[in-house]
């Protein structure tokens, strides 16, 4: 019976290992306030693109830098440096999730998830007003 016990112990240890690393290795969702209170710490920040502000993408200068303004869920605006090329249809995005950290008054994102209306799913409802005016 020893062998089964050893296996059981290994499995238990692994399962606990999963749980602990899964929790302790996690990033967490935050708003800008929290991210800027803890600079240099990695966060996921959810918000929307500020469409009134400029999206600066100068590929001639740097094809891997896009600078824009995001409004988080509390309405706070921050300048964001995204170290990627400007995503297709960025202007159309409905909400964005930034993965990165705050540094000297600006947010620096290495990764961004973007949601476009009806890009992957049938979210766009049939709207007679909108479609008729097209």
């Amino acid at each position: 019976m020893k062998k089964t016990h050893i296996i059981a112990i290994i499995i238990m240890a692994l399962a606990i290992g999963f749980m602990i690393t899964s929790v302790s290795d996690s990033s967490s969702y935050a708003d800008f306030e929290e991210a800027f209170d803890n600079p240099e710490k990695e966060y996921h920040v959810v918000g929307v693109l500020d469409k009134t502000a400029d999206i600066v993408y100068n590929p001639e200068v740097d094809p891997n830098l896009t600078v824009f303004t995001m409004i988080d869920n509390n309405g706070e605006k921050k300048t964001v440096n995204l170290y990627k090329s400007k995503p297709q249809d960025f202007e159309r995005s409905e909400s964005v999730v930034l993965i990165g950290q705050a540094h000297e008054g600006e947010f620096h994102a290495t990764e961004m998830l973007m949601k476009c209306p009806s890009k992957y799913k049938e979210e766009g409802k049939f709207d007679i007003e909108e479609t008729a005016s097209r």
């Binding site: 602990i20 929790v23 290795d25 996690s26 990033s27 967490s28 969702y29 993965i99 290495t110 990764e111």
Partner: peptide, 17 residues
């Protein structure tokens, strides 16, 4: 002192970056 637990308690646990 595990930050992840605090995030979990606040319902803000995010996937690994």
């Amino acid at each position: 002192g595990i930050d992840g637990l605090r995030a979990l308690a606040e319902g803000k646990l995010a996937p690994h970056s």
